[in-house]
Simulated assay, not measured.
Amino acid sequence: MQDKPINVLLIEEEPMLREITSFRLELLGYRVECVESAEQALDRLSGELPDLMIVGHFLPGMSGIELIDRVSNDIRTSSVPVMLLSPNADLDHVQRAYTAGAKEYLVAPYDPMVLQDKIHKLASRRPTAT
């Protein structure tokens, strides 16, 4: 990994999934900031942008897909690679996430090695990746 840690914004309502995912990412050397709602995520995005985002499907206020759509259509945040974390493996749902702007999709519960692979792919899509 690079000298400067990659900053991940994790938006997940469910505390256990948020904690497990955050812990796993920190073990891989990422710096993780966690929020539990779309509103908190949007507030956080008004400051310095993260290098990548992981968005949970069920969020208070708006769905994860709605949040991804909003982020991907905002000129300021559209370059931040996003992955949707969802319990729904339905192909139609996966397609809606990609159409909204997700670059990766991970079905929860997930294999930690699959998370690692997908997060590395997201990190390589960062505009500032070196």
Rank of each mutant, 00 (worst) to 15 (best):
T77M: 12
L45N: 05
A123E: 04
R126G: 08
A123W: 00
M62G: 07
A102C: 09
K4D: 12
G101K: 04
V114D: 15
L25H: 09
L42G: 15
R125M: 02
N7V: 12
L85N: 11
F58A: 09
K103S: 13
G101C: 08
N7Y: 11
M1V: 11
L85M: 12
E39F: 09
K121V: 05
E66L: 07
L52R: 05
I65F: 00
Q116P: 15
D51P: 07
L49A: 02
R24N: 13
D117F: 15
D117T: 13
D43L: 10
Y30S: 08
L67V: 03
R18Y: 07
R96Q: 14
N73W: 03
K118E: 02
F23D: 11
G101S: 13
E26G: 13
I20M: 10
R70A: 04
Q116E: 15
V55T: 09
T130S: 12
M16D: 13
Y30K: 02
V82D: 06
S22E: 06
D90T: 02
S72E: 13
H93V: 09
R70K: 11
E39S: 15
Y98S: 09
I75N: 15
P109N: 09
D92M: 03
R96N: 14
A38N: 02
I20Y: 07
S124K: 11
L9M: 11
G61L: 03
N7H: 09
L27Q: 11
I119R: 02
R24P: 12
L9K: 03
M62P: 15
Q116Y: 13
G29Q: 10
S37I: 06
P5E: 08
L84H: 02
S124N: 06
S37V: 00
M113P: 15
G56R: 01
T21A: 03
L45T: 14
L122V: 02
S22D: 09
V71K: 00
Q116A: 14
V94W: 04
Q2A: 15
E33S: 12
H120P: 08
K118F: 06
H57C: 01
Q116T: 13
A129P: 00
E26L: 10
E39G: 14
S37Q: 02
D74V: 07
Y105P: 00
M16H: 12
E104L: 03
N7T: 09
V80K: 06
